[in-house]
Design a binder for these strands. Sequence first.
DNA 1: AGCCAGGGTCTGC
DNA 2: GCAGACCATGGC
Length: 283
Amino acid sequence: MNYKSSSVHGADLHIDGLEHFFLPDILECGQAFRWTADSTGRYHGVAWGYPLTLEQQDDTLILFDTTPEEFDTIWKPYLDLERDYGEIKALFQTDDTLRQAMTYAAGTRVLRQEPWETLCCFILSQNSNIKRIQGMVDRFATSFGAQISPGIHAFPTPESIAALSLEDLAPVRAGFRGKYLLDAAHRVADGTVSLTAPYTLPLAEAREHLMQIKGVGPKVADCVLLFGFSRLECFPKDVWINRVLDTFYPQGFPAEFAPVAGLAQQYLFHFARNNSELLTLEK
DNA sequence: AGCCAGGGTCTGC
DNA sequence: GCAGACCATGGC
């Protein structure tokens, strides 16, 4: 189990006895882009149309201004609190590289994000960096998302984006990615691309389905499948992961980890970025 | 100042 | 199929 109990404190909810859970690992690892930490360490964000403030104190997670019902339907699945990370990590312990890698992001989890939001974010991610992606996503949501409370915006809908022109999108400062956002919105709005089918399609077909969209290649498709559709068998390959594979898995990534390779990818990504001197950097 | 960023498209072999 | 130019822009 991932936590022992939950309790209501006024308008807040406390989740106690957390395991394998650390907010900075989860919210700042480059899988989600709408969470920001304030000076007290609390995180503010929006997901599935709901705003939330989060704070972690040791093994207790505090969700401010929410209800047990909202926790059960939105935040428990969003934070992937139903998955047994202990079991998966025990499997990874059998691998020397993964055992070491897991210490660099021990509390990460694969969020269950909204597919459309994840699609847009990773279209915007291409040839960019996490800081700038956050800026583009914030301008996108602020400019075109419905205001759900003062200063807080829901993520824009595909329909609302499909009605825009490239010039309308200028405030996002997305550069060449703007036209890709519009293509994604058009295809989702007219039904060419389904945002439910990839939950269940065979992986190769799910990738091809998303890659119909201009600006969506293998890496973006895999990130959307992993972080937006909870397809943990997906293993996005960027330059860092390729260096890890070259250095530590020249015979290929072990097949026994295939069903949860996407979680391994998370640990390996952060391990790589913190230990570049260990990697073969040619090519 | 210059490099690189959680890539993808388009063109030319 | 595969390499290489090119894409816009900001963060470091």
